[in-house]
């Protein structure tokens, strides 16, 4: 796999520091599962977190009674052991996405969005941003739209292109309020993406705007 469009440095840093809300975190974690080089970068950012933790001035003391109390509470707890790596048949959706949607690609129950596009809202505890899977038929466009906030789209199956280039499995496209775009799925294969946004999309065509309140994107 040859990923061309990665996560920006500051998004990766925010993820590693624990500052991203859950839907954005799901986007980053799914990309990390597909992209060894970003995994290495995330590890570096987490190492900075570790170094900062190590450099903190300790708060309070750890006395014998606190330790004794802790030991008492963990006395009966089992210690987890590393599971041997079992490489079963590879799945299309990596973790943590697979658990979020309740199974691999072929187990999904898509909902019709209109214009041949399907989606599957993903349940998170994120109160601000929302995540969904999107399925766009091969060779067809997602209607021209702009954004009131930020949107990230990660390709899982097939590919699409925008004026910014071609996006394949693992690639992330980032769009914000300044971008009005019309992604077009490549011919040959339906394009399935993970999409996260913190605000409703704004469709340009009147017809799309009329149906938008009913389809909930």
């Amino acid at each position: 796999m040859n990923i061309q469009h990665h996560i920006s440095e500051d998004t990766l840093l925010a993820y590693s520091a624990g500052n991203l809300s859950e839907a954005w975190g799901l986007m980053v974690a799914t990309h990390l599962a597909l992209c060894p080089s970003c995994r290495a970068r995330a590890h570096e950012a987490e190492s900075i977190g570790g170094a900062l933790l190590d450099a903190l001035a300790p708060a309070g003391t750890s006395d014998d009674s606190a330790f004794a109390a802790l030991m008492q509470s963990i006395d009966d707890m089992p210690i987890e052991v590393a599971q041997p790596t079992v490489r079963a048949a590879p799945s299309v959706l990596p973790e943590p996405l697979r658990s979020y949607v309740g199974g691999d690609l072929y187990a999904l129950r898509w909902k019709r969005l209109g214009m041949g596009v399907y989606h599957l809202p993903i349940k998170t505890r994120d109160g601000k941003a929302s995540a969904r899977l999107l399925k766009v038929p091969a060779g067809r466009p997602v209607p021209l739209h702009s954004h009131t906030g930020e949107e990230m789209t990660l390709v899982l199956v097939g590919s699409f292109h925008t004026y910014q280039g071609n996006f394949q499995r693992g690639d992330i496209e980032t769009a914000d309020a300044s971008v009005e775009h019309m992604p077009i799925a490549a011919p040959g294969e339906d394009c399935i993406c993970l999409a996260v946004t913190d605000s409703p999309l704004r469709f340009r065509s009147l017809a799309a705007r009329i149906v938008q309140p009913f389809i909930g994107i």
Binding site: M1, G18, S21, E22, G25, L26, V28, A29, T30, L32, A33, L34, C35, P36, R39, Q83, T85, V86, R87, A88, A89, P90, S91, V92, L93, P94, E95, P96, R98, Y100, T124, R125, D126, G170
Partner: peptide, 15 residues
């Protein structure tokens, strides 16, 4: 009261 989504290093879906 959220989770921090993380990849699973033992997942067969991981590259």
């Amino acid at each position: 009261r959220e989770s921090h989504p993380e990849f699973d290093p033992n997942d067969p879906g991981l590259v």
